[in-house]
């Protein structure tokens, strides 16, 4: 049950790491990192379907094994508790992504459309289908309840302009995993000077998401 995920590890290694094989424990850690980052970042982050799929595989595998165990087995109940905990993180992660898709759908779809060849996609195939459907349904709904009763020149609504964008200037709390030097901190008003800070490993900071968003994607910092 605890063998290394040789088949899954190769999928997961493309996110910048050199690790060829990820242990299940490391996999769960990756899921938890993705969960917290997604929870606290103002915008939708790139999908981590490789992690999600591997975790699902682990859970199904473990559940199948537990089917064969007698009721009341002490070990089985501990395994079930662990499975419940992992499932909670997994669904919370996926749910927070869906919430962001619902909130920012025109922008999410726009970003996905303008994505270059070879760039990692923002949405998983299922999320993409969800976003498109949500978009279509919203349009149909607006048309049915209001727009078709408007004068002809006012019957279109541009969702890209009507739906607010994620606020990248929001502040976030973060912990540094890989040290960074000379991160530019831009002040809000013109009468203050911009300056740079070094982020030491293990230190915690409060700053604008925009400044450090690439570091979240690369895994150099963890949102907390």
């Amino acid at each position: 049950m605890s063998d290394a995920l040789s088949d899954c590890g190769s999928d997961a290694s493309h996110d910048g790491g050199q690790e060829d094989v990820m242990t299940p424990a490391e996999l769960i850690e990756k899921l938890e990192e993705a969960w917290l980052n997604e929870k606290f970042s103002p915008e939708l982050l790139s999908n981590r379907s490789e992690v999600v799929e591997c975790v699902m595989e682990q859970l199904t595998h473990m559940e199948a094994n537990l089917q064969r165990v007698k009721k009341g087995d002490a070990k089985a109940s501990i395994h079930r508790m662990e499975i419940d905990r992992i499932r909670f993180v997994l669904s919370s992660y996926l749910r927070s992504r869906l919430q962001k898709i619902e909130r920012f759908f025109p922008h999410v779809l726009e970003k996905e459309k303008s994505r270059g060849e070879g760039e990692p996609s923002l949405l998983s195939p299922e999320e993409f289908a969800f976003a498109k459907e949500y978009h279509a349904n919203t349009e149909t709904y607006l048309k049915a309840v209001a727009l078709k009763r408007m004068p002809p020149n006012l019957q279109t609504v541009e969702l890209l302009k009507a739906v607010p964008e994620p606020c990248l200037d929001s502040f976030v709390f973060l912990r540094v995993k890989e040290p960074q030097e000379n991160i530019l901190v831009e002040p809000e008003t013109d009468d203050q000077r911009e300056y740079v800070v070094d982020l030491e490993e293990g230190s915690q900071h409060l700053m604008r998401y925009r400044t450090i968003s690439p570091l979240v994607s690369s895994g150099a910092v963890q949102l907390i």
Partner: peptide, 12 residues
Amino acid sequence: QEAHAKLDNLTL
């Protein structure tokens, strides 16, 4: 109107 703060000693 600060734009950055270091908070190493704060717990989650």
